[in-house]
Simulated assay, not measured.
Amino acid sequence: MVVQSFNYVRTEMEAEAPAPGTSVGFVGWMRKNLFSTPGNSLLTVLGVLLLVWAVPPLYNFLIGKAVFIAENGETCRVEGAGACWAFIWARINFFIYGFYPMEEQWRVNICFVLGIILIVPLLWLDLPGKVLNAILFFVIYPIVAFILLNGGIFGLQSVPTENWGGLTVTLIIGITGIVVSLPIGIVLALGRQSNLPVIKTLSIMFIELWRAVPLITVLFMASVMLPLFVPTGMTVDKLLRALVGVSLFSAAYLAEVVRGGLQALPRGQYEAASAMGLNYWKSMLLIILPQALKHVIPGIVNSFIALFKDTSLVSIVGIFDLLQTVQSSSSDLKWAGPHQAITGYIFAAMVFWIFCFSMSRYSIFTERRLDTGHKR
């Protein structure tokens, strides 16, 4: 008989030892993300050297040696001076409103405020009342905004679109293009997948035609060639022509994005909709399109960002958008200086970056909220 001895078994738990200092905390994060391999270590060192080389001059130009307060460009012309932000502040009204009469700019401000009040709850996914909110934003708001901006009724002074400009025109073209092009793109995508030869052929011809032509050409055609085809004495507003051209151009690209989402769905989804007795439109609206659009949110938002940036191209047909107002102000002799134009372009780039980055982050947020169907 063998007697086992348990003298080696501990009767007390060993005190918990701290984790190695090189695997947790800031040092551990650096080892894992920045210095995990020799190649990553080399790239990290090169990145740090690039920042050391680029950040100090940029800081000095944009902030350290920049001119923030001045009555004219004399201070900005001092040797060693950086960005002339005083020039931006002096011309900020022109950059936002263009040639819109100063005493009537309150109408533009009301449009801005109403737009923010309506679009924030529309983008807030958890808030109820989306149907009413959508009707107010997509139907009522455009009518109210047009009446306020154009005037001519209710005692408002008439302000033709030739006097609109700056950030106001950029937002009008960008938002209108986004709102109008998405439903047109969805209809074109459905038409391209239609079993009816006529609808399918017309959809393909429309999409391929607009995708094969540069946007600059579209704007030139809308501005120069379109008046040649309308009856004598009839004129079409220049801004309206640009809106139509930009919207249809973007719709052709969105149609292909949406078609990719439709093709990504398994055939079983279509068969399940048919098995439930749903007709074509109910199956598309209730089952197919919600899933397809969820899959292609990055592509849709990417098209929206490209559209918003392409609004700067309307300047070539004489519309004073944000970029055109900045460019025309760079010749102001009162603020003439070596960095006047550069500061203006940096300001325009910052404005475009804010709007485009906001759309990108909201896209990521929406993807995460709607990604419930793929969680395990």
Rank of each mutant, 00 (worst) to 15 (best):
I116A: 14
L42F: 12
M234I: 15
L202S: 06
G129W: 13
E208I: 04
L202V: 12
A275Q: 08
A70T: 06
T170Y: 02
V179Q: 13
L196K: 13
M359H: 03
V144T: 12
I305V: 15
A336N: 13
L254D: 01
E16C: 07
L156T: 07
S223R: 05
F229M: 10
I184Q: 06
N93C: 00
F95A: 05
S312W: 03
I300V: 15
A272G: 06
K65Q: 13
E208Y: 03
L171G: 08
K375C: 07
M359F: 13
T170H: 02
N163V: 00
A336H: 08
V113L: 15
F138G: 12
E256Q: 15
W335F: 12
L118Y: 08
V218D: 04
I207Q: 02
L62A: 12
A292N: 05
R369G: 00
V296R: 10
G344L: 06
L43R: 14
E12L: 14
L240Y: 10
P128Q: 09
I186N: 05
P56W: 09
S250E: 07
F357L: 12
S181D: 07
I346T: 02
S283C: 01
I316F: 10
L265R: 08
G25Q: 09
L285Q: 11
G166M: 04
I342T: 13
S223A: 15
T217D: 07
F347N: 04
L167W: 05
F355I: 15
M102P: 00
D321E: 15
E162M: 07
I173A: 09
A81S: 10
N133C: 14
V296A: 10
Q340V: 06
L190Q: 10
G233H: 11
W89S: 09
P18K: 08
L149Q: 04
A90R: 06
A145E: 05
Q193P: 00
D371E: 14
R10P: 15
V180A: 14
L293S: 02
L132Y: 02
G166C: 06
S358L: 15
L136G: 11
I135F: 11
G152A: 09
E16A: 14
L307E: 01
S328K: 12
R31F: 05
G21M: 06
W29C: 02
L323N: 01
A275S: 14
V180Y: 13
